[in-house]
Amino acid sequence: MKWLCVVCVLLVAGCGRSEPAAVAPDHAGHQTAQPVVGDNAFNPTDLAWLQLMIPMDEQLLRVLDLAARHTVDPELRRLAAGTANDRRAELARLKALRAKAKAPTANQHAGHDMPGMMTEPEVVALSNTRGAAFDRLFAKNLREHAELSIVVAKSVATAGKHPEVKSLAASIVETRTAQLTLLPPK
């Protein structure tokens, strides 16, 4: 159900608008997408996706860094190291696109409990876990991150507008799909 909510937010952000979007504060001071004019401008789906993927990747990097010290499985350790390198490069691209869109840098998803983005208590619990128990939790969380990333990246393919955002989303679908084949079975 949580996945459906995330996808709905991204799709609704892009539905019913053909004009580009920028970001402006709403009546409560939160940043929301607002129309602007310009070539290759970002639409609300592009902005929502960038603002979701950045904290997802930032949180995942914390978890990936734990694997070097906590896992007993050498394959998971190698997967975590390679994935961390990939996510750091991806995160740089996401942040560059967010800056290009002039979107707010505040994490609008802080405290949200959804698959693919671990909560702070879950990260702390994982950091206190070692060995085979860590490996199971780590693989579960890496799988959830990959699966949610694929779902929301696919929404950008249909509802997004900015060519660089759509290209990065397509790349994420490919890399996450490949990553799922490297994880231990559920």
Rank of each mutant, 00 (worst) to 15 (best):
A146N: 04
V63E: 04
L148W: 06
H30V: 03
R130I: 07
I54G: 06
A125D: 10
S155E: 05
A81Q: 15
F138T: 02
K102D: 10
A89P: 04
V36H: 14
A22E: 04
P163V: 11
L50S: 09
A41Y: 07
L11N: 03
H70A: 14
M117K: 05
K100F: 11
G131D: 07
L60T: 14
S18A: 12
A178F: 06
S167F: 03
H145R: 14
L52C: 05
T83A: 09
R62M: 11
V156S: 03
R136W: 05
I54H: 00
A48I: 00
R87V: 03
V12S: 13
A110K: 10
A13R: 01
I54L: 01
A28Y: 04
A28S: 01
R98P: 03
A110L: 10
Q108V: 12
E75M: 08
C5W: 09
L10M: 08
A178N: 14
E19Y: 06
P185V: 12
T158C: 07
T119R: 15
M56S: 08
A157W: 14
N40K: 06
A84K: 15
A101H: 14
L148Q: 02
K140D: 06
V23F: 13
L11V: 10
T105S: 09
V151C: 14
H145S: 12
P184G: 11
A159V: 01
